[in-house]
Write a protein that binds this DNA or RNA. Sequence first.
DNA 1: GTAGGTTGTTTAAAACTTGAACCAAAGGTG
DNA 2: CACCTTTGGTTCAAGTTTTAAACAACCTAC
Lengths: 188, 188
Amino acid sequence: MTTRWLTPEEQRAWRAYVAASLLLEDTLDRQLQQDAGMPHLYYTILAYLSETPERRLRMTDLAEKLKITRSRLTYAVARLEKDGHVRREACKWDKRGTVAALTDEGMAVLERTAPGHVATVRATLFDHLTPEQVSQLEEICTAVERALQGDGSEAAPAPEGLPWLRRSSSSPPSPPSSSSPPSSSCGS
Amino acid sequence: MTTRWLTPEEQRAWRAYVAASLLLEDTLDRQLQQDAGMPHLYYTILAYLSETPERRLRMTDLAEKLKITRSRLTYAVARLEKDGHVRREACKWDKRGTVAALTDEGMAVLERTAPGHVATVRATLFDHLTPEQVSQLEEICTAVERALQGDGSEAAPAPEGLPWLRRSSSSPPSPPSSSSPPSSSCGS
DNA sequence: GTAGGTTGTTTAAAACTTGAACCAAAGGTG
DNA sequence: CACCTTTGGTTCAAGTTTTAAACAACCTAC
């Protein structure tokens, strides 16, 4: 096949996207580095952890969600652990496994920095969009996400409990319930 | 003011955007690194240069377009120059200035890798969007760009001559025309 | 229990970014 | 012209982040 080039419309959209995402990512990185002392990716790691019922996730799952290599994640988590935002724990049912658990301190950082983060997100993005555009953006990004990740919230549009960018009344202890024993092999 | 949190719609849009842009950027970086031996940012530098009538741009202009520090750009251009994709030239009318010029080899790289790049862009983005969504995306990103950059193509929607992501019949010599002498101070 | 795939870490090297310091050329101003 | 301030761009010395390859422990299945 002789390469289907982009149509003029697609070209314009692509060029605009590249410029905008560069600007956005850069602004966010700067703000978070300044405000939370970590780059956006690391912040996102904490955020993902915070959205989980148990506030913890296996390394591999996390790496897959973030679409980064395990090696890279190891480094990132090591850094976050050093800073006390995350704690490593052994995986109960799979002795190879490691789960990264958000510490209370990590949660606190998330809560403390959320206002500034939200403000930046507003200033750079939502302040310039109409409500229609907001939902269009959601549609578009969801489509991409679904296509590339093959997974994600197909039927669960919003984890609803998410403290991410929302006020959350200081961490309720969250009742114990094993995260996801692989449906087989349980006891020793 | 007590922080205007994101509405549920905005939250969903934001979450989707973050996930999608992570995925996209990562996929692109990987593909370009693999295929053209450089990260997306560097590729974008070449692309910007290629869109210019003279295929050259002053460092400062380039840095502004990319919204990166001059220091960072210096490093990037040094790398691109070492690889032969770009050549540094003195600026005629301002002896402080440096212009980065795309070499034929750099142009060749762009042309050689364009098909793969387009394919990736299609596979990750446009294949999943309706024509309406494409133009919505353009609108949205343009709004962000305009807001954050305060500049950009306000009245010039598409540089039209751009070889970026389009077939371009092997570099026509492009007639000489000084890029942009600052409209004053011409002679010695 | 043994081959084969996973999980996660380690290691060393490389790539990239930052920020401050710096120099040379411009641009005023008196 | 001498002086001072800006601007354009590079350099330097950290520092951070990423990668790739090698590895050890574990699980699975034959």
